[in-house]
Computed example of a mutant assay.
Amino acid sequence: MTVPQKPVRAAGCVLWRRAASEDGLEIALVHRPKYGDWSHPKGKLKRGEDALAGAVREVAEETGMDCRPGAPLPTAHYLANGRAKQVRYWAAEAVAGAFVPNSEVDRLLWLSPAEARCYLTHERDRPLVDALLAALHLA
């Protein structure tokens, strides 16, 4: 009998900032060269790390941005490399910082919500854009 493995725990944010665009905001997406994808900033939690603290840490590591976390957003559940993965998300406003490319993330784009939906590589990430807009009462 095999014992089921615990899911890989991860956390991230749908990072946003105010903008002069039609929607009044822009969403940050990161490009990860290892996977060749565009996604919301996220990553695995360290042992014993609180999910929200991990989400804020991952945003800082991947985008260079300090953020103010807000409403929780839907949790994503999917398989990654044959293992169950659970990613908790929060809305987070970028408040300061600057992006510097690194080995994990080589590009960052600030996009309108409509553009962000189109750029996101994985279908599972698109509903998070709508969840952010609903959390900010813009939907």
Rank of each mutant, 00 (worst) to 15 (best):
residue 37 D to K: 06
residue 60 A to F: 11
residue 47 R to F: 04
residue 69 P to K: 11
residue 25 L to D: 02
residue 111 L to D: 09
residue 85 K to A: 13
residue 62 E to V: 07
residue 69 P to D: 08
residue 122 H to E: 10
residue 110 W to Q: 08
residue 65 M to H: 10
residue 70 G to A: 11
residue 49 E to V: 06
residue 79 L to G: 07
residue 84 A to W: 12
residue 82 G to T: 08
residue 42 K to N: 15
residue 97 G to Y: 05
residue 23 D to R: 07
residue 105 V to W: 12
residue 36 G to K: 02
residue 76 A to H: 05
residue 78 Y to A: 11
residue 74 P to M: 06
residue 74 P to D: 01
residue 119 Y to Q: 12
residue 25 L to I: 13
residue 68 R to W: 01
residue 27 I to C: 01
residue 37 D to H: 09
residue 92 A to W: 03
residue 32 R to T: 14
residue 62 E to C: 07
residue 22 E to A: 15
residue 121 T to H: 04
residue 80 A to I: 11
residue 36 G to I: 05
residue 62 E to A: 03
residue 44 K to I: 09
residue 94 A to D: 06
residue 96 A to W: 04
residue 73 L to N: 11
residue 68 R to Q: 13
residue 115 E to Y: 00
residue 46 K to A: 14
residue 27 I to A: 04
residue 85 K to N: 11
residue 111 L to T: 03
residue 41 P to S: 11
residue 123 E to P: 01
residue 118 C to N: 01
residue 54 G to P: 12
residue 82 G to C: 07
residue 94 A to T: 09
residue 107 R to M: 11
residue 57 R to K: 03
residue 74 P to F: 03
residue 113 P to D: 03
residue 53 A to V: 13
residue 56 V to A: 03
residue 62 E to T: 09
residue 90 W to Y: 03
residue 43 G to P: 06
residue 87 V to T: 15
residue 78 Y to R: 09
residue 114 A to L: 00
residue 35 Y to G: 02
residue 116 A to K: 04
residue 68 R to L: 11
residue 31 H to M: 05
residue 111 L to G: 05
residue 92 A to S: 02
residue 119 Y to I: 03
residue 98 A to I: 03
residue 74 P to Q: 07
residue 119 Y to R: 15
residue 35 Y to E: 14
residue 31 H to E: 09
residue 79 L to T: 13
residue 67 C to M: 00
residue 34 K to N: 07
residue 29 L to V: 15
residue 24 G to H: 01
residue 81 N to V: 07
residue 77 H to Q: 14
residue 48 G to V: 08
residue 91 A to S: 14
residue 117 R to G: 03
residue 109 L to W: 10
residue 39 S to C: 15
residue 124 R to E: 09
residue 44 K to A: 14
residue 110 W to R: 01
residue 76 A to C: 02
residue 32 R to H: 04
residue 78 Y to N: 10
residue 35 Y to K: 12
residue 22 E to G: 00
residue 84 A to Y: 08
residue 27 I to R: 00
residue 92 A to C: 06
residue 126 R to H: 08
residue 109 L to R: 14
residue 102 N to M: 10
residue 36 G to N: 03
residue 25 L to T: 10
residue 103 S to H: 12
